[in-house]
Computed example of a mutant assay.
Amino acid sequence: MSNLRPGAPAARGLIDNVAAQDDELAASTSGRGTAGVRGVAAAPRRPFKRYFRETGWRHLVAIAISLFAIFPLLYVLSASLNPGGTLLTANSLFSNTSIDSYLTLFSSDRQPYGAWYINTLIIGLVTAAGTVLLGALAAYSFSRMRFTGRRFGLTTLLVVQMFPQMLAMVAIFLLMVAIGDVFPAIGLNSQIGLIMIYLGGALGVNTYLMYGFFNTVPSSIDEAAKIDGAGHARIFFTIILRLVAPILAVVGLLSFIGTSSEFVLASVILIDPEKQTLAVGLYKFISDEFSKNWSVFAAGAVLAAILPVALFLALQRYIVGGLTAGSVK
């Protein structure tokens, strides 16, 4: 009933498969196919006007913002390498380079930059750790416990932050003088006293910030731990702190940056040059009327920037991701 020989359909199917493979190979070699995906053609290239309207302008804005942010950094770095000691000769970036300013930082007896660096590191890290611990304890209490005056306490913390700590500078100075007469270790010209002032001033805003993050942690975790016999202290230190690590990293980073760059209170409380911080010590390089050395000041600023940058890189993995995701089903 048919004129086709036996096996002709199979031969015709084999020929069709070979032809299809040849077409796919030709499409892939000519750039019209998608690598690794059979039968899917690549999208045609967008015209330049459409590309600029949809995506290109965003690239230009990103480049402009990057240049705007990078230029001050390059200017300070160029000024630190400028042997002239003034900012006028640093207008042409990296025209003159020398490391004499960096060597001067650590060779001056009247201006102990190394001691300032260590003091800033100690005060900043201790203050950041204390701020995180005290703020987390207070935030956990406001978030998980119900007691009289809870709402009033939260409102008071928020209202107190409306008044900057600088307004109480005179009162703080007189208070530190009086405390120094009784306990000299925590009074005026004491780094411990300065740390205590920082801890008292930073408790309010950080507590309110952590309180909002603690509320995002499901209370079912606490209830499950209480069923297993855990108390508030064990729940806080072994469970909650791990789940709120991102906000702890943010508060610690902000506290360290704010403490290391604070000038007013540090200049009032710390008197001896060996006990001062970088913010107070670097001001001496440009405070004299006839001996302003901006090159050394810029060199000190470049080295001082290493501290917050290193801390940011160390805490970046906690800042980027939230550890509370997927903690409960």
Rank of each mutant, 00 (worst) to 15 (best):
D100R: 12
L93N: 03
T97E: 13
T86A: 07
T86C: 01
N96P: 00
L93D: 02
F94V: 03
N96C: 03
Y102N: 04
T86H: 05
L93G: 07
N91C: 00
S98E: 06
S78Q: 10
S101I: 01
I70F: 08
L103P: 00
Y75I: 04
F71D: 02
F71R: 08
L88R: 14
T89W: 00
F71A: 07
P72A: 05
Y75C: 01
S95W: 06
P72V: 07
S78F: 05
F68E: 03
G84V: 03
L88M: 02
T89S: 04
V76I: 12
N82S: 13
N96S: 15
L103D: 05
D100N: 12
L81E: 05
P72W: 06
T86L: 01
Y102A: 08
F94G: 04
L93V: 03
T97H: 10
G85D: 02
S95F: 06
L67C: 06
I70P: 01
L74E: 06
S80W: 12
I99R: 08
A69K: 09
V76Y: 03
T89E: 09
N91E: 10
S80A: 15
S92M: 03
S101R: 14
S92G: 12
Y102E: 04
L81V: 01
S101L: 05
F71I: 11
L88K: 14
L77V: 10
P72I: 03
S101P: 05
S95V: 08
S66F: 14
P72F: 10
P83I: 07
F71H: 09
T89F: 01
G84P: 00
L74K: 12
L87P: 00
N96L: 10
N82A: 11
F71L: 13
Y75V: 01
N91A: 11
T97G: 09
T89I: 01
L103F: 10
D100M: 07
S101C: 04
P72L: 03
V76F: 01
S92Q: 13
S66T: 15
P83D: 10
F71M: 14
I70V: 14
G84A: 15
N91L: 08
N82W: 09
L67H: 04
S95K: 15
I99W: 14
S95P: 00
G84S: 15
A79F: 08
F94T: 09
G85K: 12
S92R: 14
N96Y: 12
G85T: 02
